Amino acid sequence: MTATLPRVDTAPAAAVKRRRRSLGWVAVVPLLAFTAVAFGLPAWAVLDGAFTVKSTGAYSTANLTASWQGAYLTALLGSVKLSAVSAALATLLGLPLAQAVVTSRHRALREAVLTASGVLANFGGVPLAFAFVATLGNAGVLTRHLGLTDKGWDLYSFWGLVVVYLYFLIPLMVLTITPALEGLRVQWREAAQNNGATNAQYWLHVALPVLLPTLLGGFVLLFGSAFAAYATATAIVGSSVPLITLQIADALSGNVLVGQENVALALSLDMVLVAGLVMAVYLPLQRRSARWLA
Rank of each mutant, 00 (worst) to 15 (best):
A38Y: 11
N122D: 11
V206L: 05
I244M: 08
A249R: 06
A58V: 15
L97N: 01
S157L: 09
A38K: 04
A134E: 02
R288D: 01
V258K: 11
V278P: 00
A228T: 14
S86A: 14
L76W: 08
T65H: 11
E182C: 03
L114K: 07
G137Q: 03
A266E: 05
A116Q: 08
T103H: 09
T2W: 06
L109Q: 05
Q99W: 13
F39L: 15
A229N: 12
R185C: 03
V102N: 03
T56D: 10
V210D: 09
D9N: 15
L82A: 10
T115G: 14
G70C: 04
M279I: 12
K54R: 15
P12D: 10
G276D: 01
Q201A: 15
A290W: 01
I248Q: 02
T10Q: 12
R20M: 13
A100T: 01
A139S: 10
Q201E: 14
G24N: 09
V241M: 06
A13Y: 09
V53R: 15
V274D: 08
L277Y: 00
A192P: 10
A121N: 05
L166V: 04
L155N: 07
A50Y: 09
V113G: 04
D154V: 13
T35W: 13
N122G: 14
L211Y: 04
L273M: 12
T176H: 05
H205M: 08
A275F: 07
R287T: 08
E261M: 01
L215D: 08
Q69I: 02
Q260V: 00
H145Y: 06
L273G: 08
A87G: 02
S289K: 02
V141N: 00
L204I: 03
V162R: 10
A228K: 11
L216P: 06
S104H: 02
S117C: 11
F223N: 10
A231R: 02
H145F: 08
Q69F: 04
N199P: 04
M271T: 08
N262R: 10
S86I: 01
A38T: 10
Q286E: 09
M271Y: 01
R189Y: 13
W25P: 01
G118Y: 01
I248C: 00
T214P: 00
